[in-house]
């Protein structure tokens, strides 16, 4: 498999503030790569550099086979970028926005209109196509934004937090769209602060924290790093607590709170297994809570400290 994006020793700082402290990235063609990290980790800066928007202080970058510093326009011709904030022209209608993109891609007059209508259809914007983009809802703007990115059929697409601020339904629709893109052979470079999103979509995940890559791997490899998946059992009496410690030996006991933290991935099978063992031993459990790993856990696992800002997972 050939490489779509390759970056070595990417550095960027603004004054004293180091945003990217020499990161290496390799993205295989036709895959989804996710850069995962909290706000301020440097995700957007990485996308801006790889998409030619800003220059890196140091580092060698090849995108779509072209050296980014030497041939930025060749890179630009191969990529599409959807930033964090919608890059639509509010004073044009949705259709005019798409036709403008097609004109800038030199598709030709007739092909431009056909492509615009095709994308309006694909992104469920046919009705809104004649309205000014400034009147669109957040979700509609995101869809138009992504549609505009796709006008020129780019081979590599950068999506900077494509679902931040979207409602759950729009988020799932966006996921479906992204999966469909990759099915056509496109490479997707995606940033997100949601572990679930990276888990759902990505073939490869890199975790970025304070401008440094702290972990990299497939979703499965990363989740293995996370000890956060567990069931917390609380007992009403010290006797039950002691007994439970003998039955569930894998648990981490907390005698003061009378709780036992048992590793568990939270799946139905694992839970049923645990409940069966509790029942077989006639344990009386006061309270049971299931804790599934989230970004905080990944961060705790790979950096030894929690994220500064608790990432919202919806």
């Amino acid at each position: 498999m050939s490489t779509a994006i390759e970056a070595r020793g990417l550095h960027k700082s603004y004054g004293d503030k180091v945003v990217l402290a020499g990161i290496d990235l390799t993205v295989a063609e036709g895959t989804i790569f996710s850069l995962l990290g909290p706000n301020g980790a440097g995700k957007t800066t990485a996308v801006q550099i790889l998409s030619t928007l800003i220059t890196a202080d140091a580092g060698a970058i090849r995108v779509a086979g072209h050296d980014l510093a030497a041939e930025p326009d060749a890179v630009r011709a191969a990529i599409g970028v959807t930033g964090q904030f919608s890059a639509v022209d509010g004073l044009l209608t949705g259709r005019e926005n798409l036709i403008m993109m097609a004109d800038l891609g030199h598709l030709g007059r007739r092909a431009a209109r056909t492509r615009a209508d095709e994308l309006l259809e694909q992104f469920d914007l046919v009705e809104a196509g004649g309205k000014l983009a400034m009147t669109y809802s957040g979700g509609m703007k995101r869809r138009l934004d992504l549609a505009m990115t796709l006008v020129g059929s780019p081979r590599i697409i950068f999506l900077d937090e494509p679902t931040t601020g979207l409602d759950p339904r729009s988020r799932h629709n966006m996921w479906t769209t992204i999966r469909a893109l990759v099915a056509t052979g496109v490479t997707v470079f995606l940033t997100t602060q949601y572990l679930e999103e990276a888990d759902q979509l990505a073939d490869q995940i890199a975790v970025l924290d304070h401008g440094q890559l702290v972990a990299e791997g497939t979703p499965e490899q990363l989740k293995r790093l996370v000890p956060g998946g567990h069931v917390l059992l609380r007992f009403n009496s010290p006797e039950e607590f002691t007994l439970a410690g003998q039955v569930l030996t894998a648990g981490v006991p907390n005698p003061e709170a009378l709780t036992l933290q048992v590793p568990n991935d939270g799946s139905v099978l694992a839970l049923r297994d645990l409940l069966t063992r509790i029942e077989d031993s006639s344990l009386e459990v006061g309270e049971l809570t299931v804790h599934t790993p989230d970004l905080d856990d990944v961060f705790f696992a790979v950096t030894g400290q929690p994220t500064h800002e608790k990432a919202l997972s919806a």
């Binding site: 998409s51 928007l53 630009r76 990529i79 970028v81 930033g83 890059a87 022209d89």
Partner: peptide
């Protein structure tokens, strides 16, 4: 955001 888009286009 529109200028950021234009700048990433050839």
């Amino acid at each position: 955001g529109i200028v950021a888009r234009f700048r990433t286009m050839a």
